[in-house]
Amino acid sequence: MKINNNIQQLKQCSFGSLSNLSSRAAKYIQDVDKVNSVGQRAILGVTAMFLQPMIDMSNKDVDQKTRESSAIRSIARNGIGMLTGVTVRAATIKFAEKFTGEGKFLDFKASEKSMEAMTKQGKKIVKSLADASEKQIKNYSATMGTLLGLCVMLFTNFLVDIPLINASQNKIDNLYQKHHMKKEAKKNEEAVSGSSN
């Protein structure tokens, strides 16, 4: 009975016929636009942490040691970059939200050019945030917050990312060298004991 229900649910959200999606599938796609720049940076960072080391490891033009070292560094660089990017964006978007609303600092009086553009696109004319929908206000504050975040990251790039990346790369380098030396020593020991036998 439960299995039948699950199959029924799967059929309801089927993407099989793209020209006539079920209302549930369409809703899923419509909701993707809830992803803001924080989500985008997180997706980019996580995929980079998996894909870039794979690319580094598959580069046959260099030796194994270089490949491994490069892959480890890609993980460190992308991990730290993602953490800073996501944190700063989330903070500045939250900050922008506080100043977005009717009569607040980020409210505006629509310029003639903007009103012309809205008319041309066949959209409802929004003269100020008082006329905007909740979703539009959310998207607007996310954009303003992201733009502010990008300015903030010009500084955090130097003050946080680079020192952290350099420190972690050095740490990883040391650990890797130790691991590599141990491996080599073990190999040599085995070779010596093999030849004495």
Binding site: S111, S114, A132, Q136, I137, T146
Partner: peptide, 29 residues
């Protein structure tokens, strides 16, 4: 004010353009 108005007109209904443009600005910065 014109900047705010322009940002609203271009991005309030278009998440895809917002993600594209801000990521490109991020690359440039």
């Amino acid at each position: 004010n014109n900047l705010k108005s322009g940002v609203f007109t271009r991005y309030a209904d278009n998440t895809d353009k917002f993600l594209l443009d801000t990521a490109a600005i991020g690359w440039m910065l």
